Computed example of a mutant assay.
Amino acid sequence: MANESVPQADNPRELLASVRDLTRQVRAAQRGTWFPLLVFAVVTLAAIPVYRFVPYLDVFGRCQSRPDHTVCPAPNPAVLAYWTVALVLAYAAIAAFYVRQSRRRGVGTAIRPYITAGVVLAVLMAGVSVWLMFHPVLPVPADVFAVDRGEVEIGPAGWLVNALTSPMAVIGLALLVLAWVERHRLLLAYSLGFLAVGVIIGSRFIHATSRWFFLPQLLVPAALLLAGAAAFALFRPNAEARA
């Protein structure tokens, strides 16, 4: 790809068309869309044992005991720590992949904005989540059942803040940046759909006695990420697949 040159054209219009065609080929060669999706799918599946087996660590002393249950205003800090560290490591792996791909194909990729945005969003997720422990969307000591009974009102802004601090929403927001970096319309559509799923999942309160209640929150996004990775890998443009 790096050795290709713009073909000779008889007039400016043909030259412009040739340049545009070469630009599309370069953009196709720069793309590695399937890899970030695969990495995030693995990170999501790896979170299952953390959700299931790590006990709630009330490191901020925010949980309150009731006669029949305990109310905590935020997710398990251990789970939050997992997602923060896992996402940062995921972006490091993605950056290494794109650098290696650029060297192999001889075409540079402006991946820095995506990596920077992803790391910043992961850190913001952790910071806002800690802030919500002391300024919860759901008032404490009220429980989640009070929300359903209409005894506790949560405005749209509260629901949105709660949803956007979920790991899936953070991944979806970063994918929007990747779609912009790669000038990838299909990835843009996919990212918007995944972000919508992430917001819906992140804004739901789940009432369940099973210790596996969280599985849909992880398996549904993981399935979408795996399907997206497979689709983008299988249906790459020929120029990208040969590079």
Rank of each mutant, 00 (worst) to 15 (best):
E4F: 10
S5F: 05
S5R: 15
V6S: 08
P12K: 10
R13P: 00
V19C: 10
R20K: 14
R20S: 10
A29P: 00
T33M: 04
P36E: 07
P36I: 14
V42P: 00
V43S: 04
A47K: 03
P49D: 02
P49G: 01
V50M: 04
R52F: 15
R52H: 13
P55I: 09
Y56T: 08
Y56F: 15
R62D: 02
P67N: 09
D68L: 14
C72W: 03
A74T: 08
P75G: 11
A78E: 01
V85D: 02
A92Q: 07
A93T: 05
I94W: 03
A95T: 08
Y98N: 07
V99T: 09
I111G: 04
R112I: 08
P113T: 14
G118Y: 09
G118H: 07
L121H: 07
L121R: 03
L124I: 14
A126Q: 06
L132M: 14
P136N: 02
L138K: 12
P139Q: 02
P139R: 08
V144P: 00
E151I: 06
E153C: 00
E153H: 06
L160C: 03
V161R: 09
N162F: 11
L164K: 02
S166F: 15
P167T: 05
P167L: 10
A169R: 03
A174T: 14
A179M: 12
V181C: 13
Y190H: 12
L192T: 13
G193V: 05
V197R: 09
G198F: 08
G202D: 07
R204K: 14
R204L: 14
R204T: 15
T209Q: 15
S210V: 13
R211Q: 13
W212R: 11
F213Q: 12
F214Q: 00
F214T: 03
L215V: 15
V220K: 03
P221V: 07
L226H: 06
A230I: 08
A230D: 01
A233L: 13
P237I: 01
N238C: 00
N238F: 09
E240D: 07
A243H: 08
